[in-house]
Nucleic acid binder design. Structure first.
Length: 292
DNA sequence: CCCAAGTCCTGGTTGC
DNA sequence: TGCAACCAGGACTTGG
């Protein structure tokens, strides 16, 4: 079985988008071995020198691909627990293509890393990390995942946390609830778009100070975090690579938005106009009518 | 020119 | 007053 061509991108990568990439990547590269590593943009490296990437990765086989929040982790075989950790930043894309297709194998203007992978049967695949804005990051670490991952809270979608955890973390804080959701140390994986959508579903105003949420509201928030991300994963899981628009969002995503980017339009729940404010330095859409 | 985004960094503020 | 925790805002980057 040859490695399947895979083009994984999905607009701004938040948890559901990264989960989609993770699934496609796992399918495409698990059990393949690194052969040649090319770091075109070494400035995107963390915890790692270009030299280490070039010398330590070749010969190692990918045994597992997983995700924590917005981070992708590729675990290698061998004793040293070598991990390649990827963050897609804002505009990162992963492309995996079998070699032999001239068109598929070419560097683009935004190609930042290229990994040549080899399979048991001797065929090769090209694993490319593209990133227009270079906010993406690549870590190669021995003895476990990148140190950065230790600062992350539990995975917002499938992590081990509950209403009690949220309540404890929110207590006494004056920062707006939206800023709390964006802080990866609390929960990992929520970005600007899903934060707005979660707060709309939970009927909570994004400016509400964390500490003012009632137990009932925290329970609502906890439920909507799981449900909104679940829906995102399900929808993007249906987004076959070929359907993904080069420009950004996969089909069906934009029309599902209830708050983010809908300023000036009617709230589909109460009819009030969605407004836009800046919170935590980020554009925020919400309904002043029903989000309290 | 300004805007968007995720994360890192800095410096100022709050409250015990 | 001291100090840690907290919080706001700028830097980074590029294309629309």
């Amino acid at each position: 079985m040859r490695p399947k061509a895979c083009r994984a991108e999905a607009g701004i990568p938040e948890l559901p988008e990264v989960e989609t990439v993770k699934r496609q990547l796992a399918e495409a590269v698990t059990h393949l071995r690194f052969a040649v590593v090319e770091a075109i943009e070494p400035a995107m490296l963390r915890d790692t020198t270009e030299e280490q990437l070039r010398t330590e990765l070749p010969g190692r086989t990918i045994v597992h691909v997983c995700r924590l929040g917005k981070f992708l982790l590729l675990k290698m075989d061998g004793q040293r627990h070598l991990h390649l950790t990827l963050h897609l930043g804002m505009t990162g894309q992963i492309l995996v293509t079998p070699y032999g297709k001239v068109q598929a194998g070419a560097d683009g203007p935004h190609t930042r890393f290229v990994f040549k992978l080899v399979k048991d049967d001797g065929t090769f695949a090209r694993f490319e990390f593209r990133d227009i804005r270079k906010f993406g990051r690549v870590h190669l670490t021995g003895n476990g995942p990148a140190p950065k991952l230790r600062d992350l809270g539990p995975d917002a979608w499938i992590g081990d946390w509950d209403t009690r955890y949220l309540k404890d973390r929110l207590r006494g804080r004056r920062a707006p609830i939206k800023a709390f959701l964006l802080d990866q140390r609390n929960l990992a994986g929520i970005g600007n778009i899903y934060a707005d959508e979660i707060l709309w579903w939970a009927e909570l105003a994004p400016l509400r100070p964390c500490g003012t949420l009632t137990v009932e509201e925290v329970a609502r928030l906890a439920a909507e975090i799981r449900l909104t991300l679940e829906e995102g994963v399900r929808r993007l899981g249906c987004t076959v690579a070929d359907f993904v628009d080069i420009e950004g969002r996969p089909g069906g995503f934009q029309e599902r938005l209830r708050a983010y980017g809908r300023q000036g339009q009617d709230c589909v729940r109460c009819g009030e106009k969605i407004i836009r404010v800046i919170i935590a330095g980020r554009g925020t859409g919400y309904c002043p009518g029903c989000q309290r």
